[in-house]
Amino acid sequence: MAGKAVLVTGAGRGVGRGIALEMAAAGAAVVVNDLGTSLKGDGGEDVSPAEQVVAEIRAAGGKAVANHGSVASSADAKEMIKAAIDSFGRIDAVVNNAGNLRDTLFHKMEEADFDAVIAVHLKGSFNTSSAAAPYFKEQASGALVHMTSTSGLIGNMGQANYMAAKLGIVGLSKAIAIDMARFNVRSNAVAPFAWTRMVDSIPANTPEQARRVEGLKKLVPEKIAPFVVALTSDAGAKVTGQVFGVRNNEIYLFSQSRPIRTAHTAEGWTPDSVAERVFPQFANDFYPLHRSGDVFTWDPV
């Protein structure tokens, strides 16, 4: 990453902090973005996390500047990219890590809670990517990494807003990969498994929940960073349009939606024939209502 400039959003804590520090260690100049908000995305007065990460990078001999804008604002996103251009003369990669949570059961979810999470995760990823796109196009290179989640890829209770945003990010990443391929710009999604303040909000009211939380505490946020750095480096130049996961020392490549069964009739379908033939034919291949914890049942390694 020597000579490259990178924007990492939500980089004041947790996964984002680890990525910013690893980017700098690999030689990149880093725009450390963090709004300094609460987990719900409220506030914004606490700007110290970004400044602290910048101080760490500079103390180690690296280059970094802090930015306190909101990814939910298109104008702020453009300022983040401008900060890279003004400070380092270029922008080579964007890591869309900023996030918030407003968990509640779907039938109890308020519109404001849905909109707030979509605005940060999904719209925020669009805003920063869109702001970087003209520079990437002009220099015929660039890398985008968007944080998805197994909550979106698989499922979780009480996260309709978060699940919609995180699965939407997969579609956004693939769209960017397709549309920007001719400009040598690549885009990938990564589902990070890490114990952060977002995960710390998971309730532990039952013995089962408590056991799950204890397992999640083993997930070190800094473990995500090496993969993200490699993905944005020249070594990842041919990797685009993919969905990955990183869980401590494990790295996953996730499948993408493809047909698994078909049903055909020469006469055309009626509601009755669908009910009589298609549903029974497909039943063995229907996906159960798994949650993320039902799929990732083994301890982190």
Rank of each mutant, 00 (worst) to 15 (best):
S233A: 12
K174S: 12
R258C: 08
E214S: 12
Q281P: 02
Q242G: 08
E22V: 01
R258P: 03
P203H: 07
F106R: 15
L153G: 03
N248S: 13
W298V: 15
D34A: 10
A189P: 07
W269Q: 08
F106V: 12
D92H: 04
I85D: 00
L289E: 15
A191K: 00
G10C: 10
S48E: 13
S201K: 12
G43I: 13
S149E: 03
F183M: 01
A175T: 14
A237E: 09
R258K: 15
A50S: 11
L35M: 14
D103P: 04
L35A: 10
K137G: 04
V95I: 15
P300H: 05
F88D: 03
T206Y: 00
E214L: 08
G69E: 00
F244S: 01
L122I: 08
S233R: 04
K4F: 04
G44A: 06
G14V: 04
A210D: 10
P288M: 08
H107C: 13
N97P: 07
K166A: 07
V71D: 03
A28K: 01
V274Q: 11
R212W: 05
S149C: 05
S125V: 11
D179R: 13
A204R: 15
D294V: 11
I85G: 01
I85K: 10
V170Y: 05
T37W: 02
R58E: 15
V47Y: 10
S201Q: 14
F106T: 15
G171C: 08
Q209M: 12
A84E: 03
S130K: 13
A275I: 06
D115E: 11
A93F: 10
E214G: 05
N184S: 10
F254Q: 01
A116I: 09
Q159M: 09
Y162S: 04
D115C: 11
Q209F: 11
A165V: 02
G245V: 09
V54R: 05
A177M: 08
A98H: 07
G69W: 01
G142Q: 01
A160Q: 04
M23H: 04
F114N: 02
N284L: 13
D285F: 14
G158D: 03
K108L: 15
A11Y: 05
R186L: 07
F227Q: 13
G18F: 01
A237R: 02
D179I: 07
D294M: 10
T297V: 08
T232I: 14
S257A: 15
K108W: 09
G171N: 08
Q242K: 14
A263N: 07
M198G: 08
G36T: 09
T9M: 04
F296V: 10
M1G: 11
P207T: 05
F227A: 11
P207N: 08
G43R: 11
Y162A: 03
I19D: 00
M80T: 02
L153R: 06
I154R: 02
A75V: 14
A26E: 05
T196N: 09
L231K: 02
V6E: 00
S173A: 15
A189I: 07
A59P: 10
N127H: 07
Q209V: 06
V213A: 06
W269E: 00
